[in-house]
Design a protein around this nucleic acid. Structure first.
Lengths: 154, 154
DNA sequence: GTAATCCCTACTAATTATATAGGGTAATAA
DNA sequence: TTATTACCCTATATAATTAGTAGGGATTAC
């Protein structure tokens, strides 16, 4: 099922269709938390993570793969295999997790640290109200993501 | 052209496709700023606003209509008509504008003030790491939107 | 060898955002 | 009265997305 990002505020049927955080990020974060909560760092099979967190196993597979490729997780194949954390939870910042799963933290390219791009419709960035506002929003979000590690969320 | 919300971080073609702020909100904010910058409060025709800000006139039409229905703008028909601000820029909070154009400020329904909804996959909200993180993100964003009025962005 | 497990590619469905085009009605100023 | 402008509706289109599903290949423990 696709969950739309946005919906008309005045629509009488409007409840909360707008889930701006993707399931990908949500599930990824839940999986990481699950691994962090284990007392040991033995490999945990995807099936267990998926089942315990109500996540489609196949979907979770691709998410964990992404996290492995970016160095947050490691995996072991074969019987007794699974995924395990590469770093201590206290050393895993949310900036890394969010950037990998959700994408840039900035809501517009012109205020992005890692993926800056000029708006082609905007002649003067400094005078732009959108730029001015979204810069503040980015900074405050960044502050939150930076100050939270996986250990803080358990 | 459709600008996608998200894109794989590892994709070598990845530049900045992720514009989480919709054009609707962006254009709406720009239009409001344009009106606020005028010295008088005379009606300004859509055509002028669209042209001066590089916005498709038809698209802007629907955006301004939304803002009128929610009481941010008023309009006058006929010759010499157009849109004008109903309140002083200093009295127009960004929370109102963002909620109307973009939707809920929270990134997940379970941390939304105005559109709360329980996650059906999550047995314990208090123990949920996603909830914990996104609550902080919502609070910080809300703080920014509340403390910025249209007057602050000029 | 067999079972468990990760790895990878391809595919799908429903839906979205961002418009464009066109037409008709209503109100207003000159 | 005429020109201008907002208001409001329908229909269409494109490219891309999210949230998966399906199936098979590779690796490892026992």
């Amino acid at each position: 099922m696709f969950i739309p990002k946005n919906e008309n505020y005045l629509n009488p049927n409007f409840a909360y269709l707008c889930t701006m955080l993707s399931k990908k990020t949500k599930y990824g974060l839940k999986a990481l938390t699950y691994l962090a909560q284990k007392k040991d760092r033995n490999p945990v099979p995807i099936g267990e993570i998926a089942q315990q967190n109500n996540i489609s196993q196949k979907f979770l597979e691709s998410i964990l793969l992404t996290l492995r490729r970016t160095g947050v997780l490691a995996s072991k194949k074969g019987k007794g295999g699974g995924y395990y954390l590469l770093k201590e939870p206290a050393n895993i910042q949310m900036t890394d997790v969010i950037r990998v799963l959700e994408g840039p933290i900035a809501m517009v390219p012109c205020v992005s640290l890692n993926f800056y791009e000029k708006c082609d419709d905007c002649p003067d960035e400094v005078a732009c109200s959108v730029h001015k506002l979204m810069l503040q929003v980015r900074d405050s979000a960044l502050e939150i993501y930076r100050s939270n590690t996986l250990a803080d969320l358990i």
